[in-house]
Design a protein around this nucleic acid. Sequence first.
DNA 1: TATTGTTATACTCTATAACTATA
DNA 2: TATAGTTATAGAGTATAACAATA
Lengths: 138, 138
Amino acid sequence: MAGIYDSFGFLFTQASQMIQDHLRPALTELGLIPKQMGLMLLIEEQPGISQKEAGAVQRLDRTTMTQQIDHLEGAGYVERVARPSDRRAYGLYLTEKGTRTVAELWGHINSAHSDVFAKLSAEQVESMKECLHAIVKG
Amino acid sequence: MAGIYDSFGFLFTQASQMIQDHLRPALTELGLIPKQMGLMLLIEEQPGISQKEAGAVQRLDRTTMTQQIDHLEGAGYVERVARPSDRRAYGLYLTEKGTRTVAELWGHINSAHSDVFAKLSAEQVESMKECLHAIVKG
DNA sequence: TATTGTTATACTCTATAACTATA
DNA sequence: TATAGTTATAGAGTATAACAATA
C-alpha cells in the first residue's frame, strides 16, 4: 500500500528542509541564503572553480551565478581571480573572511545534522551518507 | 576533512532533483508540477484533508494552496467537498480521474526510484527509507 | 474575536535575450 | 563561430494584505 511517505522525492525534500530550518538563524546572521552557502562549500572544496562549473553542480543558470557571486564578492566572502589560461573565465576562491565563515558554518551544519538525525545511530547516518554518495556521485 | 559532499542538505537536495528529473516527462504530459503531484499523493493518503492541513505538510501558504488546488480541480483531478462539521473548510478528495492518475504516477515514481537507486541493494533502499521516516515523521 | 478560504497585489527568484570580451 | 561572463528585462512562484463567510 503506497502513500506519500513511500515517495523518496517527498522524503528527501522534507529532510532537506528540516536541515535548512536549523541553519536559517545562522545564515540570516551572515547575510546568506542556503544556495550561497552551498556555493561557498563548493568553492572550499574546489578552489579556482569557474562560475559555469559551479553552476553545473548547483543547477544554476550562468546569469543567476553572476548574481550570487556578486553577492558573495560584495560581502567579502569570495573573490574572482582571472585565469591566465582562459581570460573569459574567472577562478572562484574564498577570501580569508570566507574561509573563516565556512569553518563557522560547518559548526552549524554538524549541529543541524546532530539535531535532525537525533533518532539515528552513527552507523545509520554513515550508511545513509554512503548511499547518498552512490546516488549523487553516480 | 569536510567538503560539500559531507553536507546532507546538499545530498538530499541533489537526490531529490534526480528523482524529479526522472518524473518530469510524465508530469509534463499530465500538466502537473512536482508540488501538485505531492498534493495528490497526500490527498490519496488522507482523503478529506483540508487545504490548511495539506499546506502544513507541504509547507505551502494558504493562498498558494488555493491556487494549486484550483489547478488540480480545474484539471479534474481533485474536488473540494463541503465539511458539514465546519463550513469554512473544504475536504479534499481525488476524483475517479485523479485516482487513476495517481496510480499511474506511482508507476513512474517506482521507476524513478529504480533508476536513481540502481547502485543500491534493496536492503540499502529499505534501510534508507526507515532512516528518512525516523527523521521526517519525528 | 479567531479561523478557513479567496482575491488582488507585490515581492523574490530564476531564466531569456542581447551584449562584451575572449577563444 | 563558439564560449564565459554581464546586464537589462520578463516570467514563474510564492507570500502579504484586505476581504467574505463561518466558528
